[in-house]
């Protein structure tokens, strides 16, 4: 099961968290490549550029989206991304990853069809690995 996922994407402004996840992915060899965005706006710009054929970049197989971010938060990103995701001819799995334990956030995240699940930080290593396995199966 070497390099099952080609490209994973993290949208999160917490540098320490991003570093740690990066480390996990490297150590466990969960994905060949990783792209990181500090907020929703940077990520959205990336996807829009691909859509308008001005970028040769690739689409990720899986996205881990934080909720609380400056400039454009996770909710705003979701509502924008929903509008364009059908234009991609690739299945993109999306997980919301947040330290918020507010049940309203959870409800709201589940209301988006494209949100596979809501993960509460800290993520568990075992669970994280399983997500990558399942996504490939």
């Amino acid at each position: 099961m070497d390099h099952p996922i080609e490209l994973a994407c993290i949208i999160d402004d917490d540098k320490i968290y991003v570093n740690l996840v990066k480390k996990i992915i490297e150590i466990k060899k969960l994905s060949q490549n990783l792209i990181i965005f500090k907020n929703g706006k940077e990520a959205l710009d990336y996807f829009k550029a691909i859509l308008e054929n001005v970028s040769e970049e690739r689409l990720p197989d899986i996205i881990f989206l934080d909720l609380n971010m400056p400039v454009m938060d996770g909710w705003e990103f979701l509502s924008e991304f929903v509008k364009i995701k059908n234009s991609f001819n690739k299945k993109i799995t999306l997980y919301v990853v947040s330290s918020s334990i507010d049940p309203r956030d959870l409800e709201r995240a589940k209301s988006f069809n494209m949100v596979t699940d809501y993960l509460i930080k800290p993520i568990e290593l075992k669970r994280f690995e399983k997500i990558f396995e399942r996504d490939v199966a």
Binding site: L20, I101, K121, I123
Partner: peptide, 24 residues
């Protein structure tokens, strides 16, 4: 309260993630 919980949680969750990684 929301801010307190969220702010402290984000740091504590990072700590816990490190603890998991340290074990491995």
């Amino acid at each position: 309260a929301h801010i307190v919980s969220h702010q402290l949680r984000s740091h504590s969750s990072n700590l816990s993630l490190i603890a998991q990684l340290l074990r491995e």
